[in-house]
Amino acid sequence: MDTFTQNSLQVESIRGTDTGKSTLLYEVPDAESILLFVGTPHKEMQAENNPFRCIVTENVADAQKVINQLQHIFKKVPAAIIYRFDSAYESALSEWNTYFKTHQFLCSIPFFVYTDKGFDEMKSLMGRHTFIDDIITQEAWQVLGNKIAIVSKVKRMRTFPVYRSSTLRTRLYTRRFYSNFLKRSLDVALAGGGLLMLSPVMLVIAALIRLESKGPIFYAAKRAGRNYRVFKFYKFRTMVPDADRQLDKIKHLNQYDGQTDGPVFIKVSNDPRVTKLGGFLRNTSLDEIPQLLNVLKGDMSLVGNRPLPLYEANTLTTDEWVERFLAPAGITGLWQVSKRGKKEMSVKERIDLDINYAHNRSLRYDMWLMASTPFALVQKDNV
């Protein structure tokens, strides 16, 4: 196999007849993380700031040989495996499924399917092959390091009892099929019905936003949800059009404690960037109606932990905080019901609430949180 970037590992060809050589890799520097890519590599992998040393193989059999080499010669495993979707995906994924069943230790390696297009249509693959952690596209290369850090920790919790007591591990990762099925069914039914009923309200809000200020009607930005899955998050625009570029100017107003290291959240009381109509939409939570589209697409659930902006999610990749990403992203949740609109809140308190929900979530708990949400919708402070 040829080297495809200056950052790549040099990998000896393993195609064709067996030459009798037992070593396929020349050298694996300890300082680099290894990314195993199956298929034709993407040009974005050649970026100078790519933190990974990439091994590329043409097929699943070659990839499994490389994993064996890494284990037995260099005492390492890949930081992640990425399979590039192609026409032979059914047989390839079946090979991976059989492989992981016979190599339980390797089930903790993050596994992603890369595709150039058709992202939404491929979500069903994750249901049929549970070892797949996410379907990623070209945009994922920008956040791949943090995504791998979070997914690897989550998968270690699932795979190795040493990371969690057996009681908690059972509560977190088993007996969830029917609960998840009912939760998704409820999400689709309520989100679809909600969009139909609220469509006249949405049209009025869209017209008012357009009349008040220039700029887009909807605010769309990247957010990180369960397992650090990045998706486009929708809301009605409540701020001036260039609000994101003004973020540094208002950080001194942050209502969270002003620590400079560790997790970072930014929430501003009476944010000067919020328009008059935007303040009303936020205080009544009407700005969040478009998130029902995210629920229908499967990016979010009605109940879960709030999806985070990437600059916030990037600070939560440690073992201490990563558990908040075990839960699905949601429109409402424990934090909204118990703390929405309140200024007296620390970063630790916010994350502890997210982790608490991740550990205790159930369909019954979700129903209680949804029933409690209307009482938290109208807030006194513009945050």
Rank of each mutant, 00 (worst) to 15 (best):
R223D: 00
R223K: 05
A224N: 11
A224P: 04
A224M: 00
A224R: 09
G225D: 02
R226N: 07
R226M: 00
R226I: 01
R226K: 07
N227W: 13
N227E: 15
N227M: 15
N227L: 10
N227P: 05
Y228T: 14
Y228V: 10
R229I: 13
R229Q: 15
V230H: 01
V230I: 06
F231M: 00
F231P: 04
F231R: 00
F231N: 04
F231Y: 11
K232V: 14
K232D: 14
K232P: 00
K232E: 14
K232F: 13
F233E: 11
F233W: 07
F233N: 07
F233Q: 02
Y234S: 03
Y234I: 09
Y234K: 04
Y234P: 09
Y234L: 02
K235Y: 03
K235N: 06
K235T: 04
K235C: 11
K235W: 07
F236T: 03
F236I: 10
F236A: 08
F236N: 00
R237I: 09
R237T: 11
R237Y: 05
T238N: 10
T238P: 07
T238H: 07
T238G: 02
T238K: 06
T238S: 09
M239W: 01
V240E: 08
V240A: 14
V240L: 12
V240K: 11
V240D: 05
P241S: 11
P241F: 08
P241V: 05
P241L: 06
P241W: 03
D242S: 10
D242I: 10
D242Q: 12
D242L: 00
D242F: 09
A243F: 12
A243M: 14
A243G: 02
A243P: 13
D244M: 01
D244T: 01
D244P: 00
D244L: 06
R245I: 02
R245D: 06
R245S: 12
Q246P: 14
Q246F: 13
Q246H: 15
Q246Y: 12
Q246N: 14
Q246S: 09
L247W: 13
L247S: 08
D248Q: 13
D248M: 05
D248T: 03
K249D: 02
K249G: 04
K249S: 12
I250W: 05
I250V: 02
I250D: 06
K251L: 07
K251D: 03
K251M: 04
H252E: 12
H252I: 09
L253H: 10
L253F: 08
L253I: 09
L253T: 05
L253S: 09
N254Y: 02
N254H: 09
N254K: 05
N254P: 10
Q255D: 07
Y256N: 08
Y256F: 15
Y256G: 04
Y256P: 03
Y256V: 00
Y256A: 04
D257Y: 03
D257K: 10
D257S: 14
D257R: 08
D257G: 12
G258Q: 15
G258D: 15
G258K: 15
G258P: 12
Q259D: 13
Q259V: 05
Q259A: 11
Q259C: 04
T260P: 04
T260Q: 14
T260A: 06
T260R: 03
T260V: 08
T260C: 06
T260L: 05
T260Y: 02
